[in-house]
Nucleic acid binder design. Structure first.
Lengths: 161, 161
DNA sequence: GGTGATGACGCTACAATATAACCTAATTGA
DNA sequence: TCAATTAGGTTATATTGTAGCGTCATCACC
C-alpha cells in the first residue's frame, strides 16, 4: 500500500511489536516491507519471489510463517477471494477487515464502515452466533476503471453468486 | 443443505434452468444433488469423490465445470474462506451471499440481511465503486457450539486480521 | 559466563486446490 | 442431415498451502 510512506508503517509496526513483546524479525519485517511497497495485493509466492531477489534462496514455509505472524499481529490482511495479502494501514486499533476489490485494475481499498460492522454484529447476535473474524470483500469495479471504461463488466462470473 | 428437501431444490433448479434456457445436465444435476444432500460445505474434491462412487472415474475439470455453471446460475455459492461450496436455498431471486460459518462444527448458515446489503451498497457508492459480487463470511462460533462449550475459542488465528 | 527452554528459520517433501489444452460426443437450430 | 455450438473426458500441470525435522538464535535463569 503506497498511500502511506512504507517507512512510517514499518516504524509503527516495530513500535507495536515492541509494546506487545513480540519480535519483528528481519524476515517478518521484509515481508511487511514488500507488502507495503506494493500497490496491490500479493500472493505468497509473489512475496517469495521478491525475497529471492536478494542473495539467498528461500522456501515457501518461510513466507507463510512470516505471514502468519503478521496476520496474528494485525499488520497484514488476507484477501480470501484473491488468495493474496495486503499490508494494513492502521494496525493500532482492532478493526473489521472490509475491502473493495477492483476486478479490472486489481487494486484493493480497505474501508472501515461502521454501518457494515454494526449490521454484521446484529445479524450475528440475532442467530446467537459469536463472530470472531468477519470477511467482507466486495468485488467490483473501482471508480477509476469505471470512468475509463464505462461499460466494463467484471471478469467475475455472474452477479448472483 | 438438508433443511429443505433436496428433491424440492432440485426440482426448482430444473424449472429455473428451463425458464432461462440453460441446460441442467446430468453431471450438473449430480453435483447440485451432492451439495444439497450435505449439511456442510464440500470441497471440489469431496464432490469428486462422491461422484466417483458411481461407476466411472471422473477428473477435476468435470466437477469444476459443473460448479462454474451452478455458480453462474446462482444455484450454489462458494465459501471463499473455506475453499468450499454450498447449495443455495433460494436461487429464484438474486441476493447477496452472506454466511455465518461455525469454526467448531463447520456448519454454514446463509443469511439475507437487508442492513448488511444496504451498508455495503452505501459504502461502495461513497467511493464510486460499482459492486458486482459481495463476499460476506463471518467466521465464529454458532449458538449450538457456544452452548455446548461456552469457552470455545475459534481455531482461527487472532481476532484482528 | 554457562545452560536449558523456547522461538525462529532453512529445507525437503508433499497435500490440496484449481486450470490449460486438446479432443470427442451430444445437442441444437436451420 | 449437417454445421455450429456446447458439454464432457482426459492428461498434464499450475498454484496455493503444510508437515515434519533439524539447526541456530535468543532469552531467562542460575
Amino acid at each position: 500500500m503506497a498511500e502511506q510512506s512504507a517507512d512510517a508503517v514499518l516504524e509503527r509496526a516495530a513500535a507495536l511489536c515492541a509494546r506487545r513483546g513480540v519480535r519483528l524479525t528481519a524476515q517478518r519485517r521484509r515481508v511487511l516491507e514488500i507488502l507495503c511497497a506494493s500497490a496491490r495485493p500479493l500472493g505468497a509466492y509473489d512475496i517469495l519471489d521478491a525475497m529471492r531477489e536478494g542473495p539467498r534462496g528461500l522456501a515457501p514455509p518461510t513466507v507463510y510463517r512470516a505471514l502468519d505472524f503478521l496476520l496474528e499481529q494485525g499488520l497484514v490482511h488476507k484477501i480470501e477471494s484473491l488468495h493474496a495479502f495486503v499490508g494494513c494501514h492502521h494496525p493500532e486499533h482492532p478493526h473489521a477487515s472490509q475491502f473493495l476489490i477492483c476486478d479490472t485494475c486489481g487494486t484493493v481499498t480497505e474501508i472501515e464502515n461502521e454501518g457494515i460492522t454494526r449490521s454484521l454484529g446484529s445479524a450475528a447476535s440475532a442467530s446467537g452466533f459469536r463472530p470472531a473474524r468477519p470477511v467482507v470483500e466486495v468485488i467490483g469495479i473501482c471508480s477509476g476503471c469505471a470512468k475509463s471504461d464505462p461499460d466494463a463488466s467484471p471478469r467475475t462470473t455472474g452477479g448472483r453468486t
